[in-house]
């Protein structure tokens, strides 16, 4: 009797004991996901190996589209330009959005008065549709009627007034910050859930050991927050390199002005679907190649990152 209980509590034994039914658990999710996400994407990725003339697929061209993407102008320089913007997107979001979200989650966790209100307030922008967000901020950032410039004027900061979305120096940063405004509340929720799942005994124990301030943060909070930090970093990374909707809603498919807000996904959309005024593009093949490159880049980076954090997690 005793022995069976002991083996059952070992991981190996448990799964043998619980028979094959457990393998049904992931099936529903796999089927729907496979049918409506994996299949269409894989089918479409095959386009990257074909040449296109308008809508008709012509012939199998192997890796020609990939070569074209990197060696033919203007694709090559557009790719590099857009890639740099994605990197900035990621960096700025990690600092301005996730950094702030971590601090805010910590403050709420520390039980400020009105915590409920703040949680809702931070999260509220996330409820809006991206179209609404884009439209709203376009108006706020409008150079002549926009709230921001008017506020700056009233504060006597006229020299800071500018055409935020029309000036290539500020357009991309403005969009990224709007994205931070939009996504902040989600980060707060994730970090807060992380803080709150830290067992209270651990913190008590550490406190009894005399830990406080930075030591507390370094030794207790940060290691135990690794799962949520990891989730947010991976999500921000993926979201930054796929940044599309907000840029498209605010600046259209040309990454205006003068490609200063172009991102890889916008570039892809332009290649695959064309811009709205010029009809559709001939570049479905090159566009699919770009999507494939983007996919493998994100895949590899995420794998490296997860491997790295897995190790860290084990060490701690």
């Amino acid at each position: 009797m005793m022995t069976t209980v002991q083996t059952a509590s070992k991981k190996k034994g448990r799964k043998i004991g619980k028979s094959w039914t457990i393998h049904l658990f992931p099936i529903p999710a796999l089927i729907i996901y496979g049918l409506f996400v994996l299949y269409p994407i894989l089918a479409a990725l095959s386009y990257s190996f074909y040449s296109f003339n308008g809508f008709s697929r012509e012939s199998f061209v192997g890796f020609d589209n990939f070569v074209t993407l990197f060696t033919t102008e203007p694709y090559g320089s557009m790719f590099i330009n857009a890639f740099k913007h994605n990197v900035l997107y990621f960096g700025l979001q990690m600092v301005a959005m996730n950094g702030l979200a971590f601090i805010l989650a910590f403050i709420i966790y520390k039980k400020v008065k009105g915590a409920e209100f703040f949680k809702i307030a931070f999260f509220l922008p996330r409820l809006l549709s991206v179209i609404v967000v884009g439209f709203l901020w376009k108006l706020i950032l409008n150079p002549n009627f926009g709230t921001l410039n008017i506020l700056l004027g009233r504060l006597g900061l006229e020299e800071l007034q500018r055409a935020w979305l029309g000036d290539p120096n500020t357009a991309l940063v403005s969009i990224i910050l709007v994205n931070c405004w939009f996504g902040l509340g989600f980060g707060v929720l994730i970090f807060l859930a992380g803080f709150q799942s830290i067992p209270g005994e651990l913190i008590e124990a550490a406190r009894l050991d005399g830990a406080k301030g930075m030591t507390m943060l370094r030794k207790i909070y940060l290691p135990l927050m690794v799962p949520s930090i990891m989730i947010m970093t991976v999500l921000t990374f993926i979201q930054s390199f796929e940044a599309f909707e907000l840029v498209y809603a605010m600046q259209g498919s040309m990454g205006e002005p003068y490609y200063s807000t172009d991102t890889l996904a916008v570039f892809f959309y332009r290649l695959a679907f064309g811009s709205s005024t010029s009809g559709s593009s001939d570049a479905l093949g090159v566009g699919s190649a770009l999507a494939a490159v983007l996919f493998f880049f994100i895949l590899i980076c995420t794998m490296i990152f997860l491997k790295f954090t897995n190790k860290k997690e084990v060490e701690m």
Binding site: A44, E242, L294, L299
Partner: peptide
């Protein structure tokens, strides 16, 4: 994987 690629790509299939 589904997060890493724009699903818009597969709109025709």
């Amino acid at each position: 994987l589904g997060m890493m690629i724009p699903i818009k790509l597969g709109i025709v299939p």
